[in-house]
Design a protein around this nucleic acid. Structure first.
Lengths: 134, 134
DNA sequence: CCGCATCCCCGATGATACTG
DNA sequence: CAGTATCATCGGGGATGCGG
């Protein structure tokens, strides 16, 4: 399996480095992908860390049904949330953060907090850099 | 410019959400890309947060010259590091974290720390999930 | 309502070869 | 040593339609 190979490669790299600020690249890449953080954020503020598919779909601007499904499936696979299927008509599906999922929120918050604080400066740096190259 | 449009879209989304765990998706995506965190990590532990191109190239397993150049250029553009060019023969180029770049390390550490702690559990969850689907 | 399957495009990344 | 240019590749992700 290609994916598993790449993941374990990343782990090896991390272990070889042996210092703190590093972490499995694959996880960071996954969590930093286009939609994951947004989904986690919406579940973070939802009552009981729980929301249904259509709610998430409508709350997250621009996400397609396909990408929401894929993102949720990945998070479920990682054990960060669980899927609750209700056999009703029409069907209802709810997603809820697991203990591990909730446990990630403080760390995520610390990182996103830094980003929020430094975002304006980064934007300014980018503009300056781009302008210097016309 | 397509990229700028997408970035500002992300900002709008963030502002509309108005809660804490969220941050500009673009930044997280950039920092979570294949090489950025590894480069930041290596600079984090380098003397004076400073290292030359070839050192980084040799330290980071698997990175190509091209991708290291691109990653460094992006980080420079974001204002997270500065480029020091020495006109010698052969030429020497050093990269050093800026104040903002160094300021990111604690937040990064908090996040990567969580990942390191929960990585084994996530791996187990993935295996269980994959096995359940054969 | 939920989500899977299919098609398709484009950007990200790698490989390689070439300059200052 | 550091960086650029070019070409090939691969996977993310959007659009759409079908199925349970």
């Amino acid at each position: 399996m290609k994916k598993a190979t790449m993941a374990s490669d990343a782990v090896e790299i991390e272990e070889r480095l042996g210092f703190k600020p590093c972490a499995p690249t694959g996880v960071l890449a996954r969590l930093g992908d286009k939609w994951t953080v947004l989904v986690m954020s919406h579940l973070a503020v939802a009552p009981d860390h729980r929301a249904r598919f259509s709610t998430l779909k409508n709350s997250i601007e621009g996400i397609t049904q396909r990408m929401l499904t894929l993102t949720l499936r990945n998070l479920e696979r990682d054990g960060l949330l669980t899927r609750h299927y209700f056999t009703e008509v029409p069907p209802r599906v709810e997603y809820q953060l697991t203990e591990m999922g909730s446990g990630m929120l403080p760390a995520l918050e610390s990182f996103t907090s830094w980003i929020r604080e430094n975002w304006p400066l980064m934007e300014a740096c980018r503009r300056a850099f781009d302008e210097a190259r016309q």
